[in-house]
Amino acid sequence: MDIVKWSRVKSPWVFHFNAGGCNGCDIELLAALNPKFDIERFGMILRGSPRHADVLLCTGTVTRQIRDRFKRIYDQVPEPKFVMAFGNCACSGGVFQKCYNVHEGIDKVVPVNMYVPGCPPRPQAIIDAAVKLLTALQQS
């Protein structure tokens, strides 16, 4: 097996960005760190700096004020990078569709690799989405 690919699959570091979400998704993401779910089992760690990350995990519908900041953060993540739209606000705007200050989903701003629906998605859904993302990566 390609050793570089193997290493990528085994060590997805996550950078969490809140682009105007309601907090529900953010705490569910943090809940995935806690002993009950413990995503560090898969080598996933939450990093504080986008430069250290592989997966940009974005929650919340993108508000107008934050859009440019979000793009800049996206540029700071070194290649290869993956974007995970976490929660329904990030997937499509969710309940905030048809509001004047939102972009209705992060795929309007940056390309997305994995959509995780749920409002908020359960911690198991993060693990599930990560597994799906990594499986796709492994097979590519």
Binding site: I3, V4, W6, S7, R8, K10, S11, W13, N34, P35, D38, E40, R41, F42, G43, D54, P78, E79, P80
Partner: peptide, 26 residues
């Protein structure tokens, strides 16, 4: 909790995976 667990036996290869990944990254 477990900590790194699924990379190699008991997650023993986790630091190696991290290192290789970082070396191969942009």
């Amino acid at each position: 909790r477990y900590g790194p667990h699924h990379t190699g036996p008991r997650g023993l290869l986790q630091p190696l995976a991290d290192l290789i990944k970082l070396l191969a990254k942009e």
